[in-house]
Design a protein around this nucleic acid. Sequence first.
DNA 1: TTTACATATACCCATATACGTATATTAACA
DNA 2: TGTTAATATACGTATATGGGTATATGTAAA
Lengths: 114, 114
Amino acid sequence: MEKLLNTFKVLSDETRIRLLILLYHKRLCVCELCGVLGESQPKVSKHLAKLRDMGFVKDERKEQFIFYYLNMNNSVLITTLQNIICNIDEFPILAKDLKKLETAEEFIKECKAK
Amino acid sequence: MEKLLNTFKVLSDETRIRLLILLYHKRLCVCELCGVLGESQPKVSKHLAKLRDMGFVKDERKEQFIFYYLNMNNSVLITTLQNIICNIDEFPILAKDLKKLETAEEFIKECKAK
DNA sequence: TTTACATATACCCATATACGTATATTAACA
DNA sequence: TGTTAATATACGTATATGGGTATATGTAAA
């Protein structure tokens, strides 16, 4: 029950839904997530930390970047995300994020270019 | 998006999930809900008020009782409740509530008996 | 029209949450 | 080994949330 409640708590924040929808499609590093969302690094990192602590995402370092990806062990979460994606047109912010996701590699290149 | 976030906020509270799962099965008055949940009347009423204000349930007076029932216009909510019910055995509290619901009429009879 | 009962609300408190800013950490590289 | 860059965390603050107790509201019955 605790996990169910936590799943919904996680989903009650716009930034976290945006992160989860992106991660549902692709494993991404923090700077890509910041770039796509247009949100500050501490804000994104803190939400990712919460998602990680609750066991909804996992992370893995690769060179200088830390990549996050969905932990698929939470069926309510996964089902819910799929449910949202099926109706993505009702949520323009999410649809816009996904469009921007197509250019996510740009952001990591930018990071490397600096 | 606002409505989506509100849907998950509503679902992040144990008392409200219990109420919604009960109301998914049957239209119930406040004293029945208090009886089945074993929770105080102000607590139940306040959560019902929140659900009503957000448009997730509706109410209707019948004699001295006020009956609550699900507003079926929120597909994410309904789908999610169904999803929970499909896995009800993972959530013993909810399963217990449903068993107790079979005797809900007892509670309204008790009210009238006073 | 007074009383009783079902339900709603107000008020207070404790706790949780989100955010921005500043700073710490860690790995890569010069 | 010192510096840079990516990411994480600490701290302070403002706000939201849930619960209990007391009380208000409104309908029903006496």
